[in-house]
Simulated assay, not measured.
Amino acid sequence: MEKRVIKNTTLEVAPINFGGNVFGWTLDEAQSFGILDAFAAQGFNFIDTADTYAWWVNGKGGQSETIIGNWLKAKGQRDKFVIATKVGSQTKEHPNDVSKKHILKSVDESLARLQTDYIDLYYTHFDDEVTPIEETMSAYEQIVKAGKVRYIAASNVSPSRLKESFAVAEQNGWAKYVALQPHYNLLEREKFETEYASLAQQYNLSVFPYWSLAAGFLTGKYRSQEDLAKSVRGGGVSKYLTPQGFAVLAALDQVAEKHQTQPATVALAWLLAQPLVTAPIVSATSQNQLKTLFDAPLLRLDAQDLALLDGASQTK
């Protein structure tokens, strides 16, 4: 499989980034191992998690990193995988926090759960918008110099704070963000395209969209209010049961039928066709769902396909 280089790094990743939020939530450890084994067997090597996954189950998180750490130990091939995790997100007990104290404490806890000496990509998960940028970036510089983290990245950081982060890092000769993880998919285009795309270009950032399938809506599984009960995640997609949401599903169905594939595969292929996107983040909880992920990098959408999808998904 052709790998893609994360910009400004030596990291090479397959073009699908597995979202580890399902580990310890909708998948137990044994089920998670099965999914990860199948993912790795197909040549995929990029796994995304966070220190707080799945806090909504136990109030504090840590389950996903623990499961991935146990799997990495069992595999014994740490150097074959690119592991991304995050810091700063709130739980039931703590608010968002990117203070130096919290980062230095959290990175050691993540390393312990992941059973590794280093994290390949370490994200600001949610900016607290209070901590001085200098404090946050100096903490990252410290853990990069210590070898605990290879590269840093940003997720939910405002455009202004993102620009300030680069200015501070440049002024001090510190580590800079190399990637951006935005909310971006066929139904969530406007914010990224109007506020962040130019910054990704300006700072030469790799882009790893989260919620690539709009919490599962773009699989076509949810087409009515009654369908929302099909999954514990169903409630999160009710906002997409709109004329535009149905128009996007119709376009996905048409392109999927043309290529004899699944709507989810088409939705991921659309992201992969976007010039700024390096690898969409997406989860799977079954072998059938994994196949839709595996097929996405193989699907080449033509100009007609892209025009149809773009027309249905553009903000009116």
Rank of each mutant, 00 (worst) to 15 (best):
T85H: 08
Q77I: 03
G69D: 05
F33G: 01
I83Q: 04
R78H: 14
D79A: 14
K80T: 05
I35P: 04
D79T: 11
G43L: 11
G62D: 02
I67G: 02
L36Y: 00
S64P: 09
L72M: 14
D48Y: 07
W71M: 11
F33Q: 08
T52W: 03
K80S: 14
F44R: 03
N70P: 03
E65V: 03
W56D: 07
Q42K: 15
K60P: 00
I68H: 06
A40P: 05
D79P: 08
G62K: 04
D48L: 09
L72A: 08
F46Y: 15
N70C: 05
G76P: 08
N58M: 12
R78G: 06
Q42E: 15
K73E: 15
Q77P: 04
A54H: 12
K60N: 10
I83Y: 06
A50D: 09
F44P: 01
I83V: 15
T49N: 06
A41Y: 03
D48C: 10
K75P: 02
I47L: 13
W56N: 07
W55I: 00
Q77T: 13
V57Y: 06
T85W: 09
F39H: 03
A84Y: 05
A38H: 06
F81G: 02
Q42C: 08
N70M: 03
I83F: 10
W55Q: 04
D79L: 00
K80N: 13
G62H: 08
D37K: 10
N45M: 12
I83W: 05
Q63C: 03
N58H: 12
V57F: 04
L72W: 08
A38S: 14
K60Y: 13
Q42W: 01
W71G: 09
W71Q: 11
K73R: 15
G61Y: 08
W55H: 12
G76Y: 13
A54V: 13
N58E: 11
K86R: 12
F39N: 00
S64Q: 08
V82Y: 04
S64K: 02
Q42H: 15
N70Q: 15
A54Q: 11
F46I: 00
G43C: 11
A50E: 10
N58A: 12
G59D: 12
V57D: 08
F46K: 01
V57E: 14
A54R: 04
V82M: 06
N45A: 12
F44Q: 04
N58P: 10
T49W: 04
A84H: 03
Q42N: 11
T49M: 05
K86G: 03
A38K: 12
W55D: 00
T49D: 09
A40N: 10
I67Q: 01
G59P: 04
Q77H: 14
Q63M: 14
Y53V: 01
G69V: 06
T52C: 13
K75S: 10
F33C: 07
K80D: 14
